[in-house]
Amino acid sequence: MLLDGEAWQAKFHDFQSEAWRLETLPAYNVSQEEDQIRAFMAGERIDPHAYSNEYTEDLKRLRREGKSKGRVHIVTRPLSDYLRFEFMYYRPHAWAGEDIRIMDVTDRDNPLAGVQDFWMFDRAEVILMNYEVDGTQINREVHEGDVSPFLEYQRIALAESVPFEEYVKGLDL
């Protein structure tokens, strides 16, 4: 079953304890970000200390409610322009309460090679994120089978990654 619109948005309002994502691509082709990416490439940066939007406010609300939202992004160096852009927003998102971790597989085997992007809600429901090679989203698909492999992917990703702030220390982004 494909998931879109209000049904997709409801996943982020209805989960009870945890929403978690595995990101595997070096770039996502998101039309809503085109202007922001152009500005970033032209040298514009946000002030992470002053940055606030609907997403950061929602992260703070989730934390107040005792819920967690997190992700692990698998990367290789050199970081793509898109990742450098995305990292600019990761800092205020992490400060607002999202557990963002980075799994750098530049000089080692990727234990999650071949695993596609997914969201997992309450460690019980998995939504597969299907993308074209260029990072353009095709669709979101409710996984109908056993979620235990995804729990193992999450375990591996968490064990093999480091917190975002630790990863970016000393990096010239």
Rank of each mutant, 00 (worst) to 15 (best):
T56F: 02
L83C: 13
Y55D: 10
A39W: 02
S52P: 00
E57Q: 14
H49N: 15
R45D: 09
G66C: 06
L83Q: 15
D81C: 04
P78M: 11
P78E: 10
A42M: 09
Y82W: 12
A42S: 15
I37D: 07
E54K: 02
Y82E: 14
M41H: 07
S68I: 05
K67P: 03
D47C: 05
L79R: 13
D47I: 07
A42P: 05
L59P: 00
H73T: 13
Y51E: 01
E54H: 10
G43P: 14
P48Y: 08
E57V: 04
G43K: 10
G70V: 03
E57P: 02
E44H: 13
D58S: 09
D35C: 09
D47L: 04
S68A: 14
T76V: 15
A39E: 15
A42G: 09
R84C: 12
H73K: 14
M41W: 03
K60A: 13
Y51P: 07
S52G: 04
A42D: 14
D58C: 05
F85C: 14
R61H: 11
K67M: 05
R64E: 14
F85I: 10
R84S: 09
H73E: 14
L83I: 15
K60S: 08
I74G: 07
S52V: 01
R45V: 12
R63S: 13
R61M: 03
F40V: 01
E65F: 00
K67Q: 04
I37G: 05
R38T: 15
E57C: 09
L62Y: 03
R63V: 13
D47N: 10
A42T: 04
N53P: 02
E65K: 01
E54Q: 07
I37M: 12
Q36P: 00
F85A: 11
I74Q: 00
G70R: 01
R84I: 05
L59S: 00
H49S: 14
V75R: 13
L62D: 10
R71A: 13
Y55Q: 08
H49V: 10
I46T: 08
L59H: 00
Q36G: 12
R63H: 10
R61C: 02
A42E: 15
A42W: 03
S52C: 00
R64Q: 15
R45W: 12
G70F: 02
D35K: 12
G43Q: 05
F40S: 05
V72D: 08
R84Y: 03
R45M: 11
P48H: 11
N53W: 01
L62S: 02
L79D: 14
S68Y: 01
G43T: 04
L59W: 01
L59I: 01
K69H: 07
K67A: 03
Q36Y: 13
V72S: 12
D81V: 09
R64Y: 06
A39N: 09
T56N: 02
L59Q: 02
R38L: 12
F85S: 11
R71T: 13
Y55P: 00
S68C: 12
Y51L: 04
E86W: 06
I37A: 07
D35Q: 15
Y51D: 06
L62P: 05
I37W: 09
R77N: 11
S80Y: 00
S80G: 09
